[in-house]
Design a protein around this nucleic acid. Sequence first.
RNA 1: GCCGCGGUGGCGGAAUUGGCAUACGCGUCGGUCUCAAAAACCGAUGAUGGUAACAUCAUGAGAGUUCGAUUCUCUCCCGCGGCACCA
Length: 827
Amino acid sequence: MSSEKYPFEQIEKKWQSFWERERLFQIDLNSDKTKYYCLVMFPYPSAALHVGHGRNYIIGDAVARYKIMKGFNVLTPMGWDAFGLPAENAAIKGGIHPKISTLNNIKTMKSQLYHWGVGYDWSREVTSCLSDYYRWTQWIFLKLLERGLAYKKLGAVNWCPSCQTVLANEQVVNGACERCETEVYERDLEQWFFKITDYAQRLLDDLELLDEWPERVKIMQRNWIGKSEGVQIKFPVVGNDLILECFTTRADTIFGATFLVLAPEYPDIARIIKDSPNKGEIQQFIQRSRMQSKRERSNADIEKNGIFTGTYAVNLISGDKIPVWIANYILMEYGTGAIMAVPAHDTRDFEFAKKYGLPIRVVIKGESTPLDANMLKEAHVEDGVMVNSGDFNGMPNRDAAREIAGFMKQNQIGASKVNYRLRDWLISRQRYWGAPIPVVYCEACGIVPAREEDLPVVLPESVEFKPDGKSPLRAVADFVTTKCPRCKKTAKRETETMDTFVDSSWYYLRYISPSDNNRPFDKELVNKWLPVDQYIGGVEHAILHLLYSRFITKVLFDLGYVSFKEPFKKLFTQGMIIKDGAKMSKSKGNVVSPDALIERYGCDTVRLYTLFIGPPEKDAEWTDSGVEGAWRFLSRLWRLINILVSNGFVLAGADMDELSKLRQLTHQTIKKVTLDMEGDFHFNTAISSIMELMNFIYSLLGKNPDSRVSCRENTGAVKESVRALLLLLAPFVPHISEELWQLLGNKESIFRNSWPEFNENVLKKEVIQLVIQVNGKVRSKIKVSSQIGKEELKELVLRDEKIKRHITNSIIKDFIVVPNRLINIVI
RNA sequence: GCCGCGGUGGCGGAAUUGGCAUACGCGUCGGUCUCAAAAACCGAUGAUGGUAACAUCAUGAGAGUUCGAUUCUCUCCCGCGGCACCA
């Protein structure tokens, strides 16, 4: 056998340009064929791709090619999430304009994708930083503004001192900027928001529609939306007409509410401390809290600090006069920014009460809870029976919660309330490289939206990038100075740009009509092609991008632009590729570049290994010797087909038994691979079963040279399995499959051929192997006809030599037969 | 703290959902070819004992259900991910 390497260079080049010429991936959206929209998340065009990125595109390509072979009209577009901070930061450092570096990166990445053999309909490419795209991002902004879903508000927002811009709540991770990990501070700024909170309930409810999404992604979204139901209770302030409202999910503990606590940012604090003797001290305390970084403020381990306002409020249920405090552990952004503290039954309130000597009153008794508050070592947060709670004593606390809520409603002391953790989406950024927010400020008319026909508001190109916390666009006089669309007097443009997540929240719609100059997308075609049938991307977008896209889709649904409520029908989140125990990254120096590997082994090898490395939804460790294994397999495949073609598909005489086994295995493999492709994309097991099929053919190659099986019989079965072998491999290793397919004498592309079908009849075995156990332990195996009756079988088993040895001198208590599988003799 | 996922050979992982644990691949060892090496090919490869047939043990730990458990139930340990002073 030849050990020469298979000529992958020529093969891969040849077929890549063939598919391009053939327009394998360019489709007619109006065709009557069943549609399949296969979408891979469009990437940010950073520098070169590594094999970890590759996994994403290779999975998408394998799915698309499979669906093409199944006869679907497959849409696989690709584009670029091309606005964003890295390009701008690079420009500040290196002096190259973001547009130039971004377009350069796109060129490099495009060529890499091509050399991976990953096919797209490039006639539909979209690039979010070009005005023919962001024009429509601006259009979407205007639609939200019209609808009252975009608004400008002064308030405490997240500020990243390193990126010199504000961040959305979703972009703050553990109190730090998700991009640069700098600690985030709160600043009072007037900013643009999208009112995603109006959609909180629908975003939550419609998760039910997404039965083909991974459960963990839905759970993450549920947690993020963070719905909680409770009561908002009124506490009148003593000696003042103010009423403090507190949200609680534990109305049952109202008799234990022994003080109130306000967030340092609470708006009415000035009125509350107006007459306080230590007003100055309180103001200082508030100042200090507000200076703390987000990370410090939100760290649960940090010590709770507070100060008494000198004011009291009335607990209308218990009738008590209770002190009002201010403390650093109360968040202004959740609930009302004021809480009723129940130290006996809340760990935080307990800690705070102990520190400042505030009263603690037990109102729920558990099994072992002492009634004496002084004896309490920690808060009793479990359920129990009501005590010290007037008429409600003796009731189980869950029932009491309902009763008390009803009582408060009746007496107008409180009202049912639902709270969400989700906050409005802050979309303005003080940076250059983004889509300008299309509004102007007019002295006479106030905030005026740009007119639709004036879009795009073009991002000026000659700009000096100096991050000083304000948009660089402020310095571009031509841009800033404009005319008010309403009164035509001189006005100033908004100089802030949009969060790039706005760009990416609708791009899947633009692919349908990427060059339409009259509208963002063709409504009819979008309704035909959406929702996306299969969306593929990293789990890191589980909240940000996927939540925003769902929101924008719902808004467009409400506005009548689309007829579907959810953009992505089925979602697949692939795992990361790990090298030396860490995620591949330039800074860690553990990136594996595909270029050298493709040069050495060809891209089919890299593709095969990437798909074979493990279950695709899990992280996987990259090893170079694993690539070697994939290479060996393809070399063996090459050799096998060449031998069979040259000898006329003769397996030097496998006998009839083995030939029927080959047929069976072929159909079994078709079934296995098809199920994997239709199911959870377990390419690793699909590929391993194909390997088994090939190994079996190999094992028959040199066997039984004197066999008398007729040649025709022989080649028929062999040809069938070889055809199946190549067809099954085609989505994974398209180039070598296409080449060998032609070698078999086929004239048309392998992708124009239909996916092989399996025949259940072939899978039925006439002779089956049964495992025989004694007391659950395997003791013997026998081959019997699948038609055998139980009595006959029993007789046969009891005559088995090995079994006899194990059951002599014993009484058979039970004889269990699992059809087609095993027999267990219990003695 | 809460929620979710996971723990199987030296390694990546498989096991038709309760029925032969370790498929497939990597690695390792032995062999063929070679002056030699690489490549390629053939064979072995969970652990322990045994020349062997074979036996015993083994899917994070412990218990339970069952004729039978990697799979189901409970308790615990470890790892990963999400949320987290959310009232």
